[in-house]
Every structure is written in C-alpha cells, then in structure tokens.
C-alpha cells in the first residue's frame, strides 16, 4: 500500500480508532516504512503530552459559587416527564399541521392555475344551460304553463314548481360561492388561541380572526 493512502489512516490508528482490519494492513506497512512509523509515533507522543497537560488542569467551582448555584437550581421546579412530553408533541403537531396545510394550499393553487381557465366557463355554462334535473328544474314560465290533469288529487308537480321558483329566484350563484369558500380553524392546545381563516375561490383571505 502507498504511503499517501496509509497517512489518511494514521491519525485514527494513533488514537486506537481504526477498525481492526485496516489497522492490520497499516501495521504491515509500518513494518517496512520508517516515515510512516515516525508519523504514528509523533501523533501518539503529542496526544500523550496533551493528555498529561489536561490532567494537570482541572478546574473546580469556588465553594460559595457552587453552593449558590445548587440553591438556585433547587429553587426551580423540574418539569415532569408527562408535562414535557405534552409540551413537545403539540409543538411538533403544530409544525406538521401547518406544513400540511401549506402544501395542500400550494397544491390547490397550482391545480387551480392549471385547470381554471378552461374549467370555469365550462362549469358556469353547465350550470346555466342545464335544466339539469328536468323534474325539478322547469323554468317558471314552463312550470306555470303546464296543465295538470284534473284528476290528480294532490299537486306535487305544482308545489315542485313553486319550489323551483324559490330555487331559481335565488339563482345558482349562492350555491357556487359556498362551494368556493374554504374555511380553516387552527386551535392551539397550549394557549387556546383560535385562528380562523376563510379563503375564497382564488385563495385570497376573506377573513382572518
């Protein structure tokens, strides 16, 4: 093996952190390479020296300061296991929840921007042109002009017509706007704070409480 490759292993080997197999290969190299042997020895010596320095340098707290610190610590209250768990999870849940809402929102926006130009006119055309449910969606005039056989004792169709009149008077618009509204309420378990968002079909804020 080449010296350059061995050199990369030497620092780990000198501190006994090289895996056994590599260490054996390195030792085989060391047997016939004085330069690498010197390198190993020097790192070992430096490490031993530093450790010796370190052993002569242990710092301790001045007694009064340590006692003061311990008194301060004991005046605190340890958070109970469950408390800290409960504290940690909702925060995470909040983050995940917010990330999901954000991703969904962005995805919806993208989908909307892709689909919306052809889709919107089509949708409104369908709504305005379809007398879709003929049994219920006769126009007011048609409903009025229909003559019902006299022998039918109950007047379901006419009532139906009147129902349609109400529906038609209101028009298809309200139905459409309710579909295009989306509301979202986020409630913090920690603070009880409620955030209520209402978004219109263009995902613009309508309200924020």
């Amino acid at each position: 093996m080449s010296c350059s490759r061995i050199r990369k292993w030497i620092p780990l080997y000198a501190g006994a952190d090289l895996p056994a197999r590599k260490a054996r290969r390195l030792e085989m190299h060391l047997e016939r390479c004085a330069d690498c042997r010197t390198e190993v020895e020097e790192i070992k010596t430096a490490l031993d020296g530093i450790r010796a320095f370190a052993n002569g340098e242990v710092i301790d707290w001045p007694v009064a300061e340590w006692n003061g610190l311990m008194a301060r610590v004991k005046s605190e209250r340890p958070e109970h296991h469950q408390v800290s768990r409960l504290g940690a999870i909702p925060r995470k849940a909040w983050a995940y929840g917010f990330a999901i809402v954000l991703v969904l929102g962005v995805a919806a926006l993208i989908l909307r921007s892709i689909l919306s130009p052809p889709a919107s006119p089509l949708l409104s055309e369908i709504i305005s042109h379809t007398p879709a449910q003929p049994s219920r969606s006769l126009t007011i005039d048609e409903a009025a002009s229909v003559s019902y056989p006299q022998d039918i004792p109950f007047r379901v169709p006419r009532e139906q017509g009147e129902l349609d009149r109400a529906v038609l008077a209101a028009g298809p618009a309200p139905e459409k706007t309710t579909q295009d509204l989306m509301s979202m309420t986020l409630v913090s378990q920690e603070t009880g704070l409620k955030v209520h968002w209402t978004l219109n079909k263009n995902f613009e804020w309508e309200e924020k409480k």
Binding site: K8, P11, L12, G15, E42, I43, T45, A46, G49, I50
Partner: peptide, 19 residues
Amino acid sequence: LSRARVKIRRLVKDRFPGL
C-alpha cells in the same frame, strides 16, 4: 478527529519541541 490529531501533532512539534 483525524484533522484535529494531525494539527495537534504539528502544534506540539512546533511549540513544544522538547516534548
């Protein structure tokens, strides 16, 4: 760790050759 040990060797060698 590898980098640190290489540097330490160099530093000790330069500053504390006696060691």
